[in-house]
């Protein structure tokens, strides 16, 4: 089958048969049959998380386990697209993602193996997948970042709904293409209903919204004083503060009211690719990610919320529990496409 497929694709590459490739799309081979976990002392990790912050943790894992990790860094979205493109042929065994959206997309495409219970259950429901196809690793809260030279926390509304009032016309910035923002809009739809969410998006788009490419650019704009308020994830601020010193930060953070869609917590997570379902090395790594040691590392080095019960959140952050929205199940947030249609309708993406 492979040789005939190769042949048809060669012909296709020669621009002879444009459509022959549709039928030859990879991804149709069945997953490896189940069996005992196997270990060869090495595995390949696709990491959507940044090298500077995650590599020390991987080094630690390699040292402790003796397992060699080949890491391929990239941004989460591109690696997600890459994994979708590779399908069953992927050389990766584990995918470590910046956000739940990519994990959900790969899970929906059937690319993940089901995780064993001891891993899947390590993280409380609400911060992990519902079908055990991936496990949450860290939490990231949505926050409002504001220009501390111009505004005080008291000037700022407590609910995200008020940020689309005319008062904030031209003063609010965010990255609409960012997965965390889109998760938040999805949460808005779930919590407030489709109509209210659409009204909010409409008001946002009609309020001279400042559009940025990503969270960093948004934060930078606020910190430089060119933007009054932005909607981002909490840890961007902490990292910038670590870079230039917290006292030098012009941008300041405000957490919105508990229960508001604007204060939801997104998670990063990891999944095992289906062909590696029985790969003991890959399993050991994912198990390590939700261990106390790794979770503590995240708290101290990346300023994220740990998801393992018993590990304390970084200093200066409200407790994770206080941000949890009982009305919201993270698995409800995988319906990104409706959200994107909504954003596209109002010209935001």
């Amino acid at each position: 089958m492979r040789s005939s497929r190769s042949f048809s694709l060669l012909a296709l590459a020669a621009s002879a048969a444009l459509l022959a490739g549709c039928a030859a799309n990879p991804g149709t081979e069945p997953a490896e049959p189940g069996g005992e976990p196997t270990a060869d002392g090495a595995f390949t990790l696709y990491s959507g998380r940044d090298e500077e912050l995650i590599q020390p943790l991987i080094d630690l894992f390699e040292e402790q386990s003796g397992i060699e990790v080949d890491v391929r860094y990239g941004n989460t979205a591109e690696l997600g697209a890459l994994l979708l493109e590779e399908g069953e042929a992927t050389p990766a065994q584990v995918f470590l993602s910046q956000d739940a959206g990519a994990l959900g997309a790969l899970s929906q495409a059937g690319l993940f193996a089901t995780l064993p219970d001891d891993i899947a259950d390590a993280v409380p429901a609400g911060f992990t997948s519902t079908d055990d196809s991936w496990v949450g690793v860290t939490g990231r809260a949505r926050v409002v970042v504001y220009d501390g030279d111009e505004l005080t926390a008291d000037d700022l509304p407590d609910t995200v709904a008020e940020y689309v009032e005319p008062e904030w016309a031209g003063r609010l910035g965010l990255p609409p293409g960012n997965a965390s923002f889109q998760s938040f809009v999805t949460a808005l739809r779930v919590i407030e209903g489709e109509q209210a969410a659409e009204e909010w998006v409409e008001a946002l788009a009609g309020n001279d919204l400042q559009i940025f490419e990503n969270n960093t650019a948004t934060l930078t704009a606020v910190n430089e004083g060119t933007l009054d308020v932005g909607l981002i994830n909490h840890y961007y601020w902490f990292r910038q503060a670590a870079e230039v010193g917290a006292e030098n930060m012009r941008a300041q953070l405000k957490f919105l009211a508990a229960g508001d869609a604007g204060s939801i917590v997104n998670v990063t997570g990891a999944g095992i690719l289906s062909a590696a379902a029985q790969d003991a090395d890959a399993l050991e790594f994912v198990r390590f990610l939700v261990s106390e040691e790794a979770q503590t590392y995240f708290v101290e080095q990346t300023f994220e919320y740990p998801l393992l019960p018993g590990v304390d959140a970084p200093e200066g952050l409200p407790a994770l529990d206080s941000l949890v929205n009982p009305a919201l199940d993270l698995s409800d947030l995988d319906d990104l496409s409706t959200t994107q249609q909504l954003l596209a309708e109002y010209g935001l993406i």
């Binding site: 979205a77 697209a81 997309a105 790969l106 609409p176 293409g177 960012n178 490419e213 990503n214 650019a217």
Partner: peptide, 26 residues
């Protein structure tokens, strides 16, 4: 254009991959 926040087609393509994993749209 990403840095300058000027939405061109390449920006749209990246958004399609990054936000929706929608390869068809991209």
């Amino acid at each position: 254009v990403a840095m300058m926040r000027f939405p061109t087609l390449t920006w749209g393509i990246n958004q399609a991959y990054a936000a929706s994993f929608d390869r068809a749209q991209a």
